[in-house]
Amino acid sequence: QGDIVVALYPYDGIHPDDLSFKKGEKMKVLEEHGEWWKAKSLLTKKEGFIPSNYVAKLN
């Protein structure tokens, strides 16, 4: 089961498979690959890669 993270900063995706998000948006982490994680937005239901240093895990 994936962790839920919250965006600390907004992110505008650079690549087509990036997931753009707004500050405060919550996402479910699907896979962790070093600095880039695959996640699904709980708001938009879209999936893509996010920079892990832009988010914090919720406990």
Rank of each mutant, 00 (worst) to 15 (best):
residue 30 L to M: 09
residue 56 A to S: 10
residue 37 W to M: 15
residue 52 S to G: 07
residue 30 L to C: 06
residue 49 F to P: 01
residue 32 E to H: 11
residue 34 G to M: 05
residue 18 D to W: 10
residue 28 K to P: 00
residue 18 D to F: 14
residue 40 K to D: 01
residue 3 D to E: 13
residue 31 E to Q: 10
residue 27 M to C: 03
residue 16 P to A: 10
residue 39 A to W: 01
residue 58 L to Q: 08
residue 43 L to N: 08
residue 49 F to T: 06
residue 17 D to F: 13
residue 27 M to F: 13
residue 54 Y to E: 03
residue 55 V to T: 05
residue 30 L to Y: 07
residue 41 S to A: 04
residue 13 G to M: 06
residue 48 G to Y: 01
residue 30 L to R: 03
residue 10 P to W: 08
residue 33 H to V: 10
residue 47 E to R: 06
residue 42 L to I: 07
residue 48 G to Q: 00
residue 55 V to H: 01
residue 3 D to C: 14
residue 32 E to R: 14
residue 25 E to L: 01
residue 39 A to C: 13
residue 44 T to I: 01
residue 10 P to V: 07
residue 59 N to A: 13
residue 29 V to H: 01
residue 3 D to L: 15
residue 24 G to P: 00
residue 59 N to M: 11
residue 5 V to G: 02
residue 27 M to S: 00
residue 11 Y to C: 05
residue 42 L to M: 09
residue 21 F to I: 03
residue 54 Y to K: 07
residue 27 M to T: 00
residue 3 D to A: 14
residue 58 L to E: 08
residue 54 Y to G: 03
residue 45 K to E: 14
residue 3 D to H: 15
residue 17 D to G: 15
residue 20 S to W: 05
residue 30 L to Q: 05
residue 10 P to R: 13
residue 9 Y to G: 05
residue 35 E to S: 13
residue 48 G to K: 03
residue 24 G to A: 04
residue 4 I to K: 03
residue 19 L to E: 00
residue 4 I to T: 08
residue 43 L to H: 10
residue 3 D to W: 15
residue 55 V to R: 00
residue 32 E to T: 13
residue 30 L to G: 03
residue 55 V to K: 02
residue 25 E to T: 02
residue 37 W to R: 06
residue 20 S to G: 06
residue 36 W to N: 07
residue 39 A to Q: 00
residue 14 I to D: 08
residue 14 I to A: 10
residue 15 H to S: 10
residue 41 S to I: 04
residue 19 L to R: 02
residue 26 K to I: 15
residue 7 A to D: 01
residue 56 A to G: 07
residue 13 G to I: 03
residue 8 L to S: 03
residue 11 Y to I: 03
residue 13 G to Q: 07
residue 51 P to G: 02
residue 55 V to A: 05
residue 49 F to I: 08
residue 12 D to F: 13
residue 15 H to T: 09
residue 42 L to Q: 05
residue 58 L to R: 05
residue 7 A to Y: 01
residue 53 N to H: 13
residue 8 L to E: 03
residue 31 E to P: 00
residue 48 G to H: 02
residue 52 S to W: 09
residue 36 W to V: 11
residue 20 S to E: 05
residue 59 N to E: 12
residue 56 A to L: 12
residue 11 Y to P: 00
residue 14 I to C: 13
residue 59 N to P: 15
residue 53 N to F: 09
residue 19 L to C: 03
residue 26 K to R: 13
residue 19 L to S: 00
residue 49 F to W: 14
residue 25 E to W: 04
residue 37 W to A: 07
residue 19 L to I: 04
residue 40 K to F: 12
residue 56 A to K: 13
residue 10 P to A: 14
residue 53 N to P: 05
residue 19 L to P: 01
residue 12 D to W: 12
residue 28 K to A: 10
residue 18 D to E: 15
residue 41 S to M: 05
residue 18 D to P: 02
residue 47 E to S: 12
residue 22 K to F: 07
residue 42 L to C: 13
residue 12 D to E: 15
residue 48 G to M: 00
residue 50 I to G: 00
residue 24 G to T: 02
residue 44 T to H: 04
residue 30 L to I: 10
residue 49 F to V: 07
residue 9 Y to W: 12
residue 10 P to G: 12
residue 36 W to M: 10
residue 51 P to M: 05
residue 14 I to T: 12
residue 50 I to M: 04
residue 51 P to R: 05
residue 44 T to F: 03
residue 44 T to S: 09
residue 51 P to Q: 04
residue 37 W to Y: 15
residue 31 E to Y: 09
residue 23 K to I: 09
residue 46 K to C: 10
residue 27 M to K: 00
residue 6 V to W: 07
residue 3 D to Q: 14
residue 57 K to P: 12
residue 35 E to A: 13
residue 18 D to I: 08
residue 19 L to A: 02
residue 55 V to E: 01
residue 52 S to N: 07
residue 47 E to D: 06
residue 51 P to Y: 04
residue 32 E to G: 11
residue 51 P to T: 01
residue 46 K to Y: 06
residue 7 A to I: 02
residue 38 K to M: 12
residue 3 D to K: 14
residue 29 V to K: 04
residue 27 M to W: 01
residue 10 P to M: 08
residue 10 P to K: 12
residue 14 I to E: 10
residue 24 G to Y: 06
residue 34 G to L: 04
residue 18 D to L: 09
residue 15 H to V: 05
residue 12 D to A: 13
residue 31 E to L: 08
residue 48 G to N: 01
residue 28 K to E: 14
residue 57 K to E: 06
residue 47 E to L: 07
residue 29 V to L: 15
residue 27 M to E: 00
residue 47 E to Q: 10
residue 53 N to T: 13
residue 42 L to S: 03
residue 4 I to W: 08
residue 45 K to I: 05
residue 7 A to L: 01
residue 38 K to G: 02
residue 41 S to L: 04
residue 30 L to F: 07
residue 42 L to F: 08
residue 36 W to P: 04
residue 44 T to Y: 02
residue 29 V to Y: 02
residue 16 P to Q: 08
residue 7 A to N: 00
residue 7 A to E: 03
residue 27 M to R: 00
residue 56 A to I: 15
residue 7 A to W: 01
residue 23 K to G: 05
residue 59 N to Q: 12
residue 12 D to C: 12
residue 37 W to G: 02
residue 30 L to E: 04
residue 57 K to D: 06
residue 5 V to S: 02
residue 41 S to T: 04
residue 15 H to D: 07
residue 49 F to M: 15
residue 49 F to L: 12
residue 13 G to T: 05
residue 10 P to S: 15
residue 26 K to V: 14
residue 21 F to P: 00
residue 35 E to L: 14
residue 51 P to D: 03
residue 13 G to Y: 02
residue 34 G to R: 06
residue 23 K to A: 11
residue 20 S to T: 10
residue 54 Y to L: 12
residue 2 G to M: 11
residue 28 K to N: 06
residue 36 W to R: 15
residue 26 K to L: 15
residue 42 L to N: 04
residue 46 K to S: 07
residue 9 Y to A: 08
residue 25 E to K: 00
residue 50 I to T: 01
residue 59 N to S: 13
residue 16 P to Y: 08
residue 8 L to H: 03
residue 59 N to R: 10
residue 17 D to Y: 14
residue 51 P to V: 02
residue 18 D to S: 14
residue 57 K to H: 11
residue 26 K to Q: 11
residue 17 D to E: 13
residue 13 G to L: 03
residue 35 E to H: 15
residue 26 K to G: 04
residue 21 F to C: 03
residue 59 N to L: 12
residue 33 H to Y: 12
residue 22 K to N: 08
residue 15 H to A: 10
residue 9 Y to V: 07
residue 34 G to H: 05
residue 1 Q to M: 13
residue 4 I to Q: 04
residue 12 D to H: 14
residue 43 L to D: 10
residue 4 I to R: 03
residue 38 K to F: 15
residue 40 K to R: 14
residue 9 Y to D: 03
residue 38 K to W: 15
residue 26 K to C: 13
residue 58 L to A: 07
residue 25 E to C: 04
residue 27 M to H: 02
residue 58 L to F: 10
residue 7 A to S: 05
residue 6 V to I: 14
residue 54 Y to N: 04
residue 7 A to K: 00
residue 26 K to Y: 15
residue 39 A to G: 05
residue 52 S to H: 09
residue 21 F to G: 00
residue 19 L to F: 04
residue 15 H to E: 07
residue 25 E to P: 00
residue 34 G to W: 05
residue 27 M to G: 00
residue 9 Y to S: 06
residue 32 E to V: 15
residue 7 A to T: 03
residue 9 Y to L: 09
residue 48 G to A: 02
residue 21 F to L: 02
residue 39 A to H: 00
residue 36 W to I: 13
residue 1 Q to E: 12
residue 6 V to A: 04
residue 21 F to D: 00
residue 10 P to Q: 13
residue 10 P to I: 05
residue 51 P to W: 04
residue 46 K to W: 05
residue 3 D to S: 14
residue 43 L to P: 02
residue 31 E to K: 08
residue 33 H to E: 06
residue 16 P to M: 08
residue 30 L to W: 05
residue 21 F to W: 01
residue 33 H to P: 04
residue 44 T to W: 02
residue 56 A to P: 01
residue 22 K to D: 08
residue 49 F to K: 09
residue 47 E to N: 05
residue 51 P to I: 03
residue 34 G to F: 04
residue 45 K to L: 15
residue 57 K to Y: 14
residue 9 Y to T: 06
residue 36 W to T: 09
residue 52 S to E: 05
residue 22 K to P: 04
residue 24 G to M: 03
residue 46 K to P: 00
residue 37 W to V: 09
residue 22 K to M: 11
residue 50 I to S: 00
residue 51 P to A: 02
residue 13 G to C: 06
residue 21 F to E: 01
residue 13 G to V: 04
residue 3 D to P: 10
residue 11 Y to A: 02
residue 12 D to G: 08
residue 42 L to W: 04
residue 58 L to T: 08
residue 6 V to M: 08
residue 59 N to Y: 11
residue 22 K to G: 09
residue 41 S to H: 09
residue 54 Y to P: 00
residue 34 G to A: 06
residue 44 T to G: 03
residue 46 K to H: 08
residue 58 L to Y: 11
residue 18 D to R: 09
residue 58 L to S: 08
residue 35 E to G: 09
residue 34 G to Y: 04
residue 26 K to M: 15
residue 48 G to P: 01
residue 25 E to N: 02
residue 30 L to K: 04
residue 47 E to F: 07
residue 31 E to F: 09
residue 58 L to D: 08
residue 38 K to T: 06
residue 40 K to M: 14
residue 24 G to D: 06
residue 44 T to V: 02
residue 35 E to D: 12
residue 26 K to F: 15
residue 16 P to K: 12
residue 17 D to V: 06
residue 22 K to I: 14
residue 30 L to S: 05
residue 23 K to F: 07
residue 46 K to T: 06
residue 23 K to C: 11
residue 3 D to V: 15
residue 29 V to S: 01
residue 36 W to D: 03
residue 8 L to A: 03
residue 47 E to A: 08
